[in-house]
Deep mutational scan, measured.
Amino acid sequence: GLEHMADEEKLPPGWEKRMERSSGRVYYFNHITNASQWERPSG
């Protein structure tokens, strides 16, 4: 619901949600550090 939507907005600075086109899996990418990970970043 709306709570989940708001929660997605609160990623740490630099992080954004991305989708891997080949598999459709969602991952997280940090455009500041060029880091990427499957787990939702905390902090």
Rank of each mutant, 00 (worst) to 15 (best):
E20L: 09
G14E: 06
N34P: 02
E16Y: 03
E20C: 15
E39N: 09
G14N: 08
Y27Q: 02
K10E: 14
H31L: 14
K17E: 08
V26R: 03
K17P: 04
S42L: 10
E8F: 06
R25T: 05
W15T: 00
W15E: 00
R40F: 11
L11H: 01
E39K: 07
V26H: 08
W38A: 05
Y28D: 00
E39T: 09
A35K: 14
W15R: 00
Y28F: 07
Q37D: 02
A35T: 15
N34Y: 08
G1D: 12
A6V: 11
S23Y: 03
K10M: 11
W15K: 00
N30P: 00
G43L: 14
R18Q: 06
D7Q: 10
Y28I: 00
S36R: 15
S23T: 14
N34V: 04
T33N: 07
S22Q: 15
P12D: 02
G43Y: 14
Y27D: 01
H31M: 09
E39G: 06
E39Q: 12
P12S: 03
A35W: 13
H31S: 11
R40K: 11
H31G: 05
G14V: 01
H31V: 14
N30Y: 04
M5P: 12
G43H: 13
R40M: 07
E8I: 10
S36V: 14
S42Y: 11
W38T: 06
K10Y: 11
G1M: 11
P12A: 04
M5V: 12
W38F: 10
R25V: 05
E8T: 10
P13N: 08
H4N: 10
S36Y: 09
W38R: 05
G24L: 05
Q37R: 04
L11V: 02
W15N: 00
E8D: 13
G24C: 14
L2M: 11
R40H: 08
P13Y: 13
G43R: 10
T33L: 06
H4V: 13
R40Y: 08
K10S: 14
T33S: 06
E9K: 08
G14D: 06
A6Q: 14
Y28M: 00
N34T: 06
G43T: 10
E16I: 06
E8M: 08
F29E: 01
Y28W: 06
E8Q: 09
G24K: 06
P13G: 06
K10G: 12
S42N: 13
S42K: 10
P41A: 00
I32S: 07
M19I: 15
D7H: 09
Y28E: 00
R40P: 08
F29M: 03
G43M: 12
E9D: 12
I32T: 08
E16R: 03
I32W: 09
S23D: 08
L11M: 05
S36Q: 11
E16S: 05
I32P: 03
Y28G: 00
E8A: 09
I32F: 11
E3L: 09
G43N: 10
R21A: 15
E16G: 03
N30L: 02
S23H: 04
E9M: 09
A35H: 14
L2K: 10
F29Q: 02
K10V: 12
G1C: 13
E8L: 08
K10L: 11
S22R: 12
H4R: 03
K10N: 13
L11E: 15
E3N: 12
S42H: 10
M19K: 13
P13F: 12
W15D: 00
E20Q: 12
P13W: 13
Y28A: 00
L2G: 13
W38V: 06
P13K: 06
E3T: 11
S42M: 10
G1V: 14
S36F: 11
P12F: 02
W15L: 00
Y27I: 02
E39W: 09
G24R: 05
S22E: 15
A35Q: 14
D7E: 11
A35I: 14
T33Y: 06
P41V: 01
M19H: 14
E39F: 06
R21T: 15
G43W: 14
H31N: 14
W15M: 00
N34Q: 14
S22D: 15
M19L: 15
E20H: 15
S23M: 03
A6N: 11
P12R: 01
F29D: 01
R18Y: 08
K17N: 01
Y27P: 00
K17R: 09
R25W: 04
G24Q: 09
T33K: 05
M19Q: 10
S22L: 15
Y27R: 00
V26D: 05
S42V: 12
R40W: 07
R21L: 15
S36G: 02
N30E: 02
V26W: 15
A35D: 07
L11I: 04
H4Y: 11
L11W: 02
E20V: 08
D7S: 10
G24V: 02
R21D: 15
S42F: 10
G43Q: 13
S36T: 14
S23I: 02
H4P: 11
E39M: 07
E39V: 07
H4Q: 14
Q37N: 02
L2C: 08
S23W: 03
Q37T: 06
P13S: 07
G24S: 05
L11Q: 03
S42R: 09
T33P: 00
V26A: 07
S22K: 14
D7L: 10
W15I: 00
E39Y: 07
N30Q: 02
K17F: 04
S23Q: 04
Y27A: 01
W38N: 05
A6D: 13
R40D: 04
G24T: 03
E8P: 08
G43C: 09
Q37W: 02
P41F: 01
S42T: 14
R25L: 08
H31P: 06
F29I: 04
T33I: 05
E3Q: 12
A35L: 13
T33Q: 04
S23A: 03
W15V: 00
E9W: 08
I32K: 07
P41Q: 00
G14A: 05
A6K: 12
R40I: 06
M5I: 13
